[in-house]
Design a protein around this nucleic acid. Structure first.
Lengths: 353, 353
DNA sequence: TTGAAAGCGCTACCAC
DNA sequence: GTGGTAGCGCTTTCAA
């Protein structure tokens, strides 16, 4: 491994000068700077970040903490963040919690984060008070995505508003028995999103003059399989809903499938709305509330750069940035069937094939 | 930040002894070891990996290079790898190429990789000869996923065999005009997979005594949108195929959608097969050739540990591990329509809605 | 079993 | 403009 010393020897200058030249600092004659760059390139010299880190205290690395890397939403946010970060020479250290509380504690409350990265981006998790004070006490630079605390910058969407949009759409179509498929109560403790969406659901229902029937609320775990199970469950009710609002597209896709399984026509007999605008949504004709996903990662990365005095490529807007959502009407929603959901009685049930 | 020195001061022992004790090395009295551990815990000491790295030359970090993080396949492989790596105390540095050749060169042929990580896992990319020699010259430990070279361990599936399985299934159902939707020629240079799957397609066709009609080959870019376009194209042909084999489920999902757009019944008029068993496949009733995805990441991580003399938790099988694939028949495939694809003539075309 | 001290490969301060 | 050098926070001989 050729080091800075080799370059210095090669050009017959001091280590200090080489260091300055290679980092584009002033105080090196143009001629020498040129020779140094040549030599460095010829020798295939690349500075040891580790050593630089130890000397400067900066790692040029940002940690990203994700609940589940393999989920579309999170990997897409990571992608967005990575794009702007790598453009600025920052590397990305990925911590995948995989839903484990143990991993969460290990990652969030040790110096793994603070000693190895200049900043941390936390996706989808609501930091506990303990985590907040720990991170704050250790001078961590933190940016949140999908959650918000006063202390740190954040980028989110208005989850409550997104729910309201979705439900208002259903209400406008005449639906009155609207079911909800969301996260579980435990999840709601850790994740900001499920709770806010549930709150929004209730708010929208009452604003629309409808009653949210507790019997129509289901847990879908934000997965297709969870949505499927919830959907079956709902459709097997004696008085099934005429519409289902799902807190994510993945769950909505599961409900769509459940409807097919039960021979329930969408949207004639059942309307389904999700949130996200998942890449599959348009191919499945799913009506949804679109949120910008990669953009949330991008914006979070910009906040990080600002935090690190890196004057970001674009002006960083608000400290607590709330991105816009937008209703995308496709054909999974339609007018409420006259007389409510009749298929439970008329068409009978049973799997399709 | 409390450092090792603080701990040493606290217990009244030397830095050297503390270092030994904390790393579980022999040569420390049980009593002192205990006191040191207590003190470290009380002071909230966590060693600086950077400093350790500089001193030992090991980073306890592995780099993972991904063509596109946000693609289901890759993020799932990353997830699998992360699980075993984090279990062994390794951190994961993520390099997302996002399809950029410039990024690829920057990542693969600088010391980013070799100086910052003990090993590199490269997903889905066929290393060029230049990259191979560069990495080899710089003593990089490399493990490949979805590609293979003699020099390094790898974990793959038999892509050719997967194609053969899919096509044989279609042929057995009586299909003769079988279309192929895969990657582009340029992609094939960089990615091992598209090429192998195309080769397998051709092999299977001839083995089944069928002729691969070049007019029935399309580029789908491994995305749903690409598959959709290819599907429209194929179905608009004067002599459309009765079956489409797609090199990935995402493209197959696009073709499924194209069929719906054109009012073509699946599987009655058109059979569709993919490869992957994407999480959405079962919900869309897609027949596919399943490959273990997270498992490829897990196995790659085990190879990494073996490379780093970490005696892995499980025995590492072959150096060039080839994981099994399996045909999963669902209802997107069925017997070839008698008399070939007639819908172009009888049913007319036009979008559905 | 313990401690002193020499690095690891840089950066940054201070002289020149 | 340039060079000498003291750290950065550890690990690892080598002696005691």
């Amino acid at each position: 491994m050729t080091g800075i010393k080799d370059v210095a020897l090669d050009v017959g200058l001091s280590i200090a000068t080489v260091s300055r030249a290679l980092r584009g600092q002033p105080g090196v004659s143009a001629d020498n700077r040129h020779r140094i760059e040549q030599a460095a390139a010829r020798l295939g010299y690349v500075p040891s970040r580790t050593a630089a880190n130890l000397a400067t205290g900066r790692t040029r690395t940002v940690a990203v903490v994700v609940p589940y890397v393999s989920r579309w939403f999170f990997s897409t946010v990571v992608h967005g963040a990575e794009q702007v970060l790598s453009g600025r020479g920052y590397d990305l250290l990925l911590f995948n919690l995989a839903g484990s509380a143990e991993a969460r504690h290990r990652v969030m409350q040790t110096h793994q984060l603070t000693k190895r990265a200049d900043a941390v981006v936390i996706l989808g998790l609501q930091p506990t008070p303990a985590e907040q004070t720990w991170l704050a006490d250790h001078a961590a630079r933190v940016v949140l995505v999908g959650a918000s605390v006063p202390t740190w910058p954040s980028v989110t969407i208005d989850d409550e508003a997104a729910s309201v949009t979705a439900v208002a759409h259903l209400a406008a179509l005449g639906h009155r028995r609207i079911a909800y498929v969301g996260g579980s109560a435990e999840e709601a403790l850790d994740f900001a999103t499920p709770r806010a969406r549930l709150v929004g659901f209730h708010r929208a229902m009452s604003e629309s003059g409808l009653e949210a029937d507790p019997a129509l609320e289901r847990v879908g775990g934000f997965t297709v399989a969870g949505g499927l199970a919830a959907g079956h469950d709902l459709l097997d009710l004696d008085q099934p809903p005429t519409a289902v609002f799902c807190a994510s597209d993945e769950m909505a896709i599961g409900v769509l499938r459940a409807a097919r399984d039960r021979g329930v026509a969408v949207p004639e007999q059942l309307s389904v709305v999700g949130i996200d605008d998942h890449e599959m949504a348009q191919f499945l004709d799913l009506t949804t509330v679109r949120q910008p996903v990669a953009e949330q990662g991008r914006q979070a990365a910009l906040q990080v750069l600002a935090l690190l005095d890196e004057d970001p490529p674009e002006p960083v807007p608000a400290r607590h940035l709330v991105l816009e959502t937008e209703l995308v009407v496709r054909s999974s929603t339609g007018p409420a069937p006259a007389g409510g959901a009749a298929y439970g009685i008329i068409a009978g049930r049973g799997h399709r094939s």
